[in-house]
Structures are given as structure tokens and as C-alpha cells.
Design a binder for these strands. Structure first.
Lengths: 204, 204
DNA sequence: CGGTTTATCCTGTTTTTAAGGGATTGCCGC
DNA sequence: GCGGCAATCCCTTAAAAACAGGATAAACCG
């Protein structure tokens, strides 16, 4: 029985590229594509593919959220993340949300086919580059607590410690401590480079 | 005579997508593709296509730089920018570097064909979305002076006013004024949101 | 030429952060 | 039950940045 594959990606050229890569494969049945999260969910109500290739950047919702939602409603559908970015936190979040694999958009036909065949067996697949990124990331991961992330975002919004404290119903000194810890975790000296690094590492 | 088209993009799936979109078009001759700037330049030494579809994000060099270089050496080759981002400054820089058009990767086959046929005549083509972005950007452009950009980058590096002043051989109060002007131009209250907005708008 | 922009510099005051030092509570896993 | 971590809170001092309201010389441009 052929493996039913569905694509969610807002870039027409990528959809065409994948279709062209898969069209001559015998074990693959192309069931269609969606350009956004909403039409993906609508499609799933009618029929479920075996595998969804899912972009991380969608116009209406992040692929990470869509991934979680799909896995909740249809646990038997396997999801392979698809992205141009080989960014540690993205890959990690995608896997945390229930994805079974991750492939970069510069993958070859062979890699894509291998990913599909591995994932359909219930195993996990990483593209070489993605796993390189992950292992590199493990050497020096910046792990923030929920509260720290919250504070970090409010700092980026331009709020002062006092304003953040009011918003979160805590003392300004608490925010000061969180700030202190954020600077330490990122290994920077001040807010400017904190925000810059946090942005580059996709925390904001 | 068929229009010779060449692609520069490091994402295999996108290359495949474009190839598949163009392969049945009679007026188009696919002359090949490159995954990076270096092999693009190597190809051009042997033969010149009529049109290059060029990604903005390449592994070894930015598409903007490659665009400039190609136009210097081979002025008769038309270049169409290709990107997932519809980011004002990217589009602007690409056009400033000699590109004749700009197409987003979610373009349809029709759009792509229209872009090629318009550009080959020596005219300029913008995809609908790209031109929307440009006109929107014109309403509220943030124009920084050379000095302001310089200071902005040093702020993002985490330097204090005094350190920046030393580095640029000016008074700390001068840096303070530049900072004041940067905050005003971005319409923000402090460094944190300055860096955040500057990053989002690709100034850093 | 004359206006505009750019870059430079100044004197203040007030607010906000950074950097040190601690302390307490509650929760989780071993 | 104990160690570790997360989250909370406090103090002090010095540095840095924001805010206000200026001025001047040079370069750029129509």
C-alpha cells in the first residue's frame, strides 16, 4: 500500500519541488497540499494521510502550533518538519510538539525518501545537517525558565523593570534578578546585546 | 529563440520546484542551476544565460553582493530576485544592486512566467506582494545616516556610550545624541526595543 | 547662494540598569 | 528527606541611559 503524503507549505515553488521529487516514486501517493494551517486542518477532517511534510513558517499559524494541534486530533499521522532554517530552537520545538522528523529544504530526493521511509515505521529521522545542529546546540544550550522567557519578551517590548513588575504582579527587585540571570545565561553585559542575541537565537 | 534561464538557490526543493514549473514552457530553456555564489560565477565564465533567478540567502555570499558582482561582469544578464521574505530593505537592496525584478517563492507559475517575459524586455517586474511591501515601506521609511548605523551596530554589540566614543574618537555626548536620534527615528523608548525593532527591520 | 542635513559638542536632571552581596519558599526528583 | 532549582524578595552603590534644551561647523544639494 502506498504511503499517503500531504504537504503544508505556503511557498508554491517548494510545493512544486516536493511534488516533482515524489511523483515518480512508486510507494508514494500524493494526496494534496495546503498553503496554510486552516486549510490543512480542513483537509484532515475529510481524510488523513500517513505523513505530513510541514513547513515551520506558515502565514496564519506557526508550524509548531499546527504540529501540536494535528498530533492531538490525529495521533496516527506522522509529521516531518520542513524548514530553510537549521535553527536549534526551531528543530527542538518542532520535535517537542510531536514531529517525527526534520528535513531541511536543501535535502535531496534520496534524503527525503529516506526520511519518509524511516518515519512511516514509527522511528525518528533527522537530516544530517539538522542533527549536526542539534548536537552542536547540546554543547551550549541556553535554557530559560518560563518566567525568564516572559520577562525577556517584556524587556524586548521596551518595558522598564517597574512596568514589568506591575504587569506580572511581583516586586521590581524580582525582575531585576531575572534580568541578572538572563544576562548571565546569555553571557552578555547589557540589555542591548541580550536582545540582539536573544533575537538571533529565536527566543523573541 | 528560447530564453535561457539559470537558477541560483541553495534549496534543492526550490530548484526542483522552479524546474518543474518551467519545464513545459516552450519559450524557456533551462540551462542549469547553482547552489552557491561561487559555482554560479564559475558557470557564468563558460556561458551566459538571459535571466538568472537568484535567491537572496546563499551559503557563501548574500544574493545582494552576488547580484552586484554579476551585473558588473555581465551587464546584459537580467536578474530576478527570489526570496521567502517580503522584507522592505531586502527588496530595495536587491534592486539597488542591479536586479530587474523580484518574485516571492510563493509565486504561481503564471507570475513567474510573467516576471520572466517582462524582465527579458528590459523592463522591471514586481510581484504584487513585493510591490505592496515597497509602497507600504515608502509611507514610513526609517532612514539612518552612516554614522547612526555605525553607532547602532556598536550598541547592539553591547558597548557603552563611553566605549563607542573611544572607538569612534568622538565625545561620549555625541554618542548620546546619536542614540537620542535613533530612539526618535524608531519611535521607541529605550535600547531594548530599539535593538528589537532594528533587528526585525534588518538593520542589524 | 541659502537652506537642510549631518555630525559634533555642551550642561543639566531623572530614571533605569548593572553588579555585588544575600535570603526565603515551594516543588521535583533521587 | 535532602539537594537542586525556580521564583520570589531585599539592600547598596555606581554606572549608564533617557530626557530636556540647547549650540556650532561642515558638507550636501537644489
Amino acid at each position: 500500500m502506498a504511503t499517503k503524503v500531504f504537504i503544508v507549505d505556503d511557498h508554491y515553488m517548494v510545493v512544486e519541488g516536493i511534488r516533482s521529487l515524489l511523483q515518480n516514486e512508486k510507494g508514494i501517493e500524493w494526496t494534496g497540499h495546503a498553503m496554510n494551517a486552516a486549510s490543512c486542518l480542513a483537509f484532515l477532517q475529510r481524510q488523513q494521510p500517513d505523513i505530513i511534510l510541514m513547513d515551520i513558517n506558515l502565514p496564519d499559524k506557526s508550524g509548531i502550533d499546527l504540529c501540536r494541534e494535528v498530533k492531538e486530533k490525529y495521533p496516527s499521522v506522522f509529521i516531518i518538519g520542513l524548514s530553510t532554517f537549521n535553527q536549534q530552537s526551531f528543530i527542538q520545538k518542532m520535535m517537542d510538539s510531536g514531529a517525527s522528523g526534520y528535513v531541511l529544504k536543501n535535502a535531496t530526493q534520496e534524503e527525503l525518501m529516506e526520511a519518509i521511509s524511516v518515519v512511516i515505521k514509527g522511528k525518528i529521522y533527522f537530516s544530517d545537517e539538522a542533527s549536526q545542529v542539534l548536537t552542536k546546540a547540546d554543547v551550549n544550550p541556553i535554557l530559560l525558565t518560563r518566567r525568564e522567557k516572559e520577562v525577556l519578551e517584556l524587556i524586548a517590548e521596551g518595558l522598564t523593570n517597574n512596568e514589568i513588575a506591575q504587569k506580572l504582579f511581583v516586586s521590581p527587585t524580582t525582575i531585576d534578578t531575572h534580568r541578572k540571570n538572563l544576562l548571565a545565561k546569555f553571557g552578555v553585559r547589557n540589555t542591548a546585546s541580550l536582545i540582539r542575541d536573544a533575537t538571533k537565537l529565536q527566543f523573541i
